[in-house]
Simulated scan of single mutants.
Amino acid sequence: MSLNIEYEGSLYPSLIHSEESLRFAREEFQVRDDDTFIVTYPKSGTTWMQEILPLIFSEGDLTPIHTMQNWQRVPWLEQKSGKALLENRPSPRLITTHLFYHLMPKSFYTSKAKVVYVIRNPKDALVSSFHYHKMASFLENPGTFDEFIHKFLEGKAVMFGSWFDHIKSWWAVKGQDNILFLTYEEMLQDMRGVLVKLGEFLGKQLSGDAIETIAKQSKFDNMKQNNMSNYSFVPEDVMNQKESNFLRKGIAGDWKYHFTAAQTEYFNSVYAEKMKGLNFPFYED
Rank of each mutant, 00 (worst) to 15 (best):
M1K: 15
E8F: 04
G9W: 05
S10W: 08
Y12A: 02
P13H: 14
F24D: 07
E28D: 14
F29N: 09
Q30T: 14
D33N: 13
D33A: 07
T36V: 15
T36L: 08
T36C: 05
F37V: 06
P42S: 09
K43L: 10
S44V: 02
T46F: 02
W48K: 12
Q50G: 01
F57M: 14
G60L: 10
H66A: 04
R73L: 01
V74R: 00
V74E: 03
G82K: 06
L85G: 04
L86D: 06
L86M: 02
L94C: 00
T97C: 07
T97A: 06
L99E: 00
F100A: 03
Y101I: 03
H102V: 00
H102I: 02
M104C: 04
K106P: 05
K112V: 10
K114F: 12
Y117T: 03
V118L: 14
R120H: 06
D124S: 09
A125W: 02
S129F: 12
Y132L: 14
H133S: 11
K134A: 08
K134Q: 15
S137F: 09
L139D: 03
F148C: 03
H150V: 13
F152S: 00
E154A: 15
F160A: 10
G161H: 03
F164N: 01
D165V: 02
H166Y: 11
W170P: 06
W170R: 12
W171M: 06
V173I: 15
K174I: 06
D177V: 05
L180C: 09
L182P: 06
L182K: 07
Y184G: 01
E186F: 02
M187F: 05
M187R: 03
Q189K: 15
G193A: 11
V194S: 06
V196A: 10
K197H: 13
L198W: 04
L198D: 08
E200F: 03
E200R: 09
L202M: 05
S207L: 08
S207F: 10
D209R: 12
A210P: 08
A210C: 13
E212W: 03
T213H: 09
I214C: 05
I214M: 07
I214F: 01
A215C: 03
Q217F: 12
D221L: 06
K224S: 07
Q225I: 00
N226I: 00
N230D: 04
Y231H: 08
V234C: 11
E236H: 06
E236W: 02
K242H: 12
S244Y: 02
S244K: 08
N245F: 11
F246V: 10
F246A: 02
L247I: 15
R248N: 08
K249W: 08
I251Q: 11
H258D: 13
H258Q: 09
A261G: 00
A262G: 11
Q263N: 12
E265Q: 15
S269I: 02
M275D: 07
M275S: 10
M275R: 08
K276L: 14
K276E: 14
G277Y: 11
L278F: 14
N279P: 08
F280M: 11
P281H: 10
E284L: 07
